[in-house]
């Protein structure tokens, strides 16, 4: 039983990353590659702060702010200097690799014997659930404010937002900062739960977050923003359970990234394949 609980708590912690990616990928319609760097940045900043005796909760908050700066840089590159979305993110992500090593002073920082949010409560599940629930509620409320609505509409129909007097560049930058703050918080929690921060901890994390989003969307198809966010959280937990089962089934752990990529591609392709089948069925009838 406890193995299931620890799998679910992993899902909850990684759900914070998935929520962050949801902001860019689904709300803003922006494929933000910065995320992999910000996750590591969050982990690195948090690990360094904790090993210097800073309170672990405060360290998480600071990690979120640090990562939001990464989002700011990507946003400025994209909106002010008109660099393509994907390239802006890749540039920031690559730059962060060096910055993260500078922050940690080496390739990884161990938290062995340090006080973390998990050692004080000794309850991974409770911590994961609390942080996740809190962030989900705050985010869903934010998306119902004027600013949040304006960000959603910017992703949906930028031209209309401009015609209605919105500074869409500002909205995009803000959404990227928010998204990356979530990635940083996720990185801080992941680092604390695994007991170290490593310069490569973000590699492949974006695809995991995307997998959580698409699995969640396949499970729930409601339109309300709160339900969409909850779907992402459940998608993240489901992803962890699926991974747990396929590994138990004897899959080579090094094949996991291939497996995840195939899952994401399949779920993204599914609606289009379904449309094609419907269309060809109609053709046959005619």
């Amino acid at each position: 039983m406890s193995i299931y609980i620890s799998t679910c708590s992993q899902g909850l912690i990684w759900a914070i990353l998935a929520l962050g990616i949801f902001i860019t990928f689904r709300v803003l319609n922006f494929a933000d590659m910065t995320a992999e760097g910000s996750l590591t940045l969050g982990g690195a900043v948090c690990a360094v702060l904790i090993s210097n005796g800073i309170n672990p909760i405060l360290s998480i908050v600071i990690s979120g702010f640090a990562a939001s700066i990464a989002g700011l840089i990507t946003g400025v590159l994209h909106t002010k200097f008109k660099i393509q979305a994907i390239l802006s993110g890749v540039l920031t992500m690559i730059a962060l690799y060096s910055i993260n090593i500078r922050i940690m002073g080496k390739a990884n920082v161990s938290l062995l014997g340090k006080r973390t949010v998990f050692s004080t409560s000794n309850q991974n599940f409770a911590v994961g659930l609390t942080v996740c629930a809190l962030l989900t509620i705050v985010l869903s409320l934010f998306f119902k404010t004027r600013l949040g609505l304006a960000i959603r509409a910017t992703g949906d129909n930028e031209q209309m937002m401009k015609a209605h007097g919105a500074n869409t560049d500002f909205k995009k930058i803000l959404a990227l900062m928010l998204s990356n703050a979530f990635c940083g918080i996720a990185g801080a929690l992941i680092g604390q739960s695994q007991g170290y921060a490593d310069v490569n901890m973000g590699t492949g994390s974006l695809v995991i977050a995307l997998a959580s989003i698409v699995i969640g969307e396949a499970m729930f198809t409601k339109d309300a923003i709160l339900l969409k966010l909850i779907a992402v959280v459940f998608g993240s937990i489901a992803y962890r359970l699926i991974v747990f089962f396929v590994l138990n089934f004897g899959m080579n752990p090094s094949d996991l990234k291939l497996f995840t990529a195939v899952v994401v591609a399949a779920f993204l392709a599914l609606p289009n394949i379904r449309k094609r089948i419907v269309r060809s069925a109609k053709n046959v009838k005619n």
């Binding site: 409320l141 004027r146 949040g148 609505l149 304006a150 509409a153 949906d156 129909n157 209309m160």
Partner: peptide, 26 residues
Amino acid sequence: SSPNLTVEENIALAASKNVKNNLRLA
């Protein structure tokens, strides 16, 4: 209009075009 927002949210967004306080519920 923005297809993923409701009709009311779209109207609210257009109506708040000159309003400053952005963190109120729309």
